[in-house]
């Protein structure tokens, strides 16, 4: 089903945020919409967005490629994004990530066998006072997430549970 058919209300609301002659501005919110369900953006969704905004599919794809929060292939249902940037690393982020890898039995960038968790190492998440910081990105509601306080003390085992 096309994006406009599936989310008619949302598409309309998003387009209304920008001047009609600059509807291309809606490309980022539309990509989030397309990514809502499966956690990645399909070729068809890119074609839909290109058609809605009257730009080329290549232009849409180049946006997807430029920004790190858009994904063009299916990965884990949840993305665990562990910050290993300088302030977090000064408070044990690298060790925390190593432990998480060991507990989940995967390396950074990999997905658990059950398809539940993809583990990522990311740059500063603007919460360095809660170092080591990580967040979980999940499906459904735009992107469901929790910002976790002081990860290691919560004894992350399987990391995330099925909702």
């Amino acid at each position: 089903m096309s994006l406009e058919k599936k989310y008619p209300k949302e598409v309309k609301q998003l387009l209304a945020k920008y001047p009609p002659e600059h509807k291309r501005s809606a490309v980022m919110p539309l990509l989030y919409l397309a990514q809502r369900e499966e956690g990645y953006i399909t070729r068809e969704a890119m074609q839909d967005i290109a058609r809605i905004l009257e730009i080329t599919e290549t232009e849409v794809a180049s946006i997807v490629g430029f920004y790190t929060l858009y994904h063009d292939k299916k990965e884990g249902k949840y993305r665990m994004q562990v910050c290993t940037d300088l302030p977090c690393a000064l408070r044990g982020a690298d060790e925390f990530l190593d432990n998480l890898c060991a507990n989940l039995g995967i390396k950074v960038g990999e997905t658990t066998e059950d398809g539940l968790v993809t583990l990522e190492s990311v740059m500063c998440l603007a919460a360095c006072d809660r170092a080591p910081m990580f967040q979980t990105q999940g499906p459904r509601r735009h992107q469901v997430s929790r910002v976790h306080d002081r990860g290691p003390h919560h004894g992350i085992g399987r990391g995330v549970e099925e909702e």
Partner: peptide, 25 residues
């Protein structure tokens, strides 16, 4: 209106931010 970026530090630089807000890289 709010507008969400998508993970690019460079979009904090004001002209990159404006490009991004216009729907470009």
């Amino acid at each position: 209106y709010t507008h969400l970026g998508a993970g690019a530090y460079i979009c904090g630089e004001e002209t990159a931010l404006l490009e991004s807000l216009e729907g470009k890289r």
